[in-house]
């Protein structure tokens, strides 16, 4: 079914995929919230490794810095500022079963679509000589307006977050 050659890339892909799926399943099944965040950090790191495999070094570093670093820490702060005592309170078996069936059937649909699509066998693009420089040139020439808009969005979002979290304390 998976008629791929056993190359270095495939072995590395398999290792990262194992880390990511393991982390994601642990995230779903663990009991304590902090453990869930830690296993999620494993998923983020595995994803960073996969970006390196895809010749996207800059995105990989951004992934590790922002997701494995900032977002995980932010979530841990969120956990520390709220209370989590009763984790395994009354569960909703019917609801969870329905959601599981829905997610599985969605995955089946995706899998069928991916398997039946005839992807043109384009040779992998030769990686840019300097990934970061190429991204920087593209970002500051073709995508300068979205870039500036994003910086405004980030500023507004963080000021709003501070205002939201601070207001109620008074």
């Amino acid at each position: 079914m998976f008629n791929v050659d056993i190359t270095g890339e495939f072995i590395a892909f398999f290792a990262f995929a194992a880390i990511m799926i393991g982390g994601a399943v642990l995230m779903i099944s663990l009991e304590k919230v902090v453990h869930m965040v830690i296993s999620m950090a494993a998923v983020f790191l595995g994803l960073g490794g996969m970006y390196v495999l895809l010749d996207a070094e800059f995105v990989a570093f951004v992934q590790v810095l922002i997701y494995a670093g900032a977002v995980s820490i932010l979530m841990i702060f969120g956990i520390m500022m709220t209370k989590h005592s009763g984790e395994s309170e009354p569960v909703r078996p019917l609801h969870e079963a329905l959601v599981a069936v829905g997610a599985l059937s969605l995955f089946g649909l995706f899998f069928y679509a991916i398997r039946t699509t005839d992807f043109p066998d384009a040779a992998a693009a030769a990686p840019a000589e300097d990934n970061t420089m190429a991204i920087g040139e593209l970002l500051f020439s073709g995508y300068i307006v979205p870039f500036e808009l994003l910086s405004v969005l980030l500023t507004v979002a963080f000021i709003g977050a501070i205002a939201l979290a601070k207001k109620e304390a008074e």
Partner: peptide
Amino acid sequence: MLPSYLTMAAILFCIGLYGALA
């Protein structure tokens, strides 16, 4: 290799969907 990556992303997406809803 492309279908492998797409399948990987589909697995992650569905696990995330389950977590978000359940």
